[in-house]
């Protein structure tokens, strides 16, 4: 049993032993709780705060959690590109000085050993490292694909690693291609690219592999400027799209049967208007912490917009085993990640 559900069930049992009026005033009311439906949260803006003289951040781009419950924050401050926290927000480790464009961070368990994949949009490379920063492998511009004229036109933002070790790289700030390698680093396929057709991308910012509901794995890829999630086969064929109007989604993160996404902007893309998205197993938006109530009319989601100024530019969501969320932000005054504790 997960800790959250254990606490929930034991709390109900405890309340049953005492008189209700006695404890009524200790209940949490709706004020200060963000989100909708079954996905509501308390906000802790100070969760990850550190002394910036010693552990500075610029943009806080992405976070992942390893199997020991340690949280890895990626920032493009080269004094410490990676900050490692425990779930209480205490700093455990800091490393990395060679990633000026540190942007995407993916964790992959390879036969019991976990590795990080750092997408650096300044170095125009993806770097595979150990959890303490030792470089294992580097993926550069796929010039052999003949889609690129120069290394600098490849500006990777995210990776997804399949169970067989295949690596998918999203060139979200570059030519918008998804590059597919095998575990040896050999190029297998390249698809997507810029254009106006549905299989094209405008800001292919994030990518993940969806294995929910016992279905064969597929790729979920964000088209951020198009406010869409696009589902592709592992061979790169478009299957379907998920419209999230007003949500400028960064990368999909799958936890249990849900998809979590940070929307860096909302509505018309104005600055400082971000919020968080939680999709259910049917890919319907069911909660939007910081945003308006998601409403579907005739199967179409209404335009999403920010209602509370909690976030400026949320860039990623990391989900722990209790379904609490950790939210790093881009261009938000060099602030540290915010924690949303599920209630």
């Amino acid at each position: 049993m997960q800790r959250r559900s254990f606490i929930k069930k034991t709390s109900v049992a405890s309340v049953g032993l005492v008189s209700l009026p006695l404890f009524a005033q200790a209940r949490t009311n709706e004020n200060g709780i963000v989100g909708h439906g079954d996905f509501k949260y308390k906000v802790n803006v100070n969760w990850g705060a550190l002394n910036s003289q010693y552990y500075p951040v610029n943009d806080c781009h992405e976070m992942v959690m390893d199997k020991k419950g340690r949280l890895y924050l990626l920032t493009n401050n080269t004094k410490n590109n990676v900050l490692v926290y425990n779930k209480d927000g205490d700093l455990l480790n800091a490393w990395g000085t060679q990633y000026p464009g540190a942007h995407g961070l993916t964790l992959h368990d390879e036969n019991g050993t976990e590795y990080l994949y750092i997408s650096d949009n300044n170095r125009h490379e993806v770097i595979k490292t150990t959890l303490d920063g030792k470089v294992i492998q580097v993926y550069s511009c796929p010039l052999e694909s003949e889609k690129y004229e120069s290394k600098s036109s490849f500006i990777p933002t995210e990776t997804a690693i399949a169970s067989n070790g295949d690596v998918y790289i999203a060139d979200g700030y570059g030519a918008q291609y998804i590059t597919h390698y095998n575990a040896k680093g050999e190029l297998l396929n390249i698809f997507g690219g810029k254009g106006s057709q549905m299989h094209h991308f405008d800001n292919a910012h994030g990518i993940c592999i969806d294995t929910r509901n016992g279905k064969p794995p597929t790729l979920l890829i964000t088209a951020r400027q198009q406010n869409k999630l696009k589902r592709f086969s592992m061979a790169g064929e478009l299957i379907s799209t998920i419209d999230l109007p007003g949500a400028y989604i960064c990368r999909p993160v799958i936890h249990n049967e849900n998809v979590y996404l940070a929307s860096i902007w909302s509505h018309d893309g104005s600055p400082d208007t971000g919020f968080i998205c939680v999709l259910d197993k049917n890919d319907q938006l069911v909660s939007a912490p910081g945003g308006c109530v998601p409403k579907y009319t005739d199967g179409k989601l209404g335009n999403m917009y920010q209602t509370l100024s909690i976030f400026k530019h949320p860039h990623d969501v990391c989900v722990d085993e209790d379904e609490n969320l950790y939210v790093p932000q881009w261009n938000s005054g060099k602030t540290y990640p915010i924690k949303l504790t599920r209630v």
Partner: peptide, 15 residues
């Protein structure tokens, strides 16, 4: 939430 009493005003603003 936010380390405050529920009946006090939040430190967060409406968008």
């Amino acid at each position: 939430a936010f380390g405050q009493e529920n009946n006090q005003q939040s430190t967060f603003a409406l968008a």
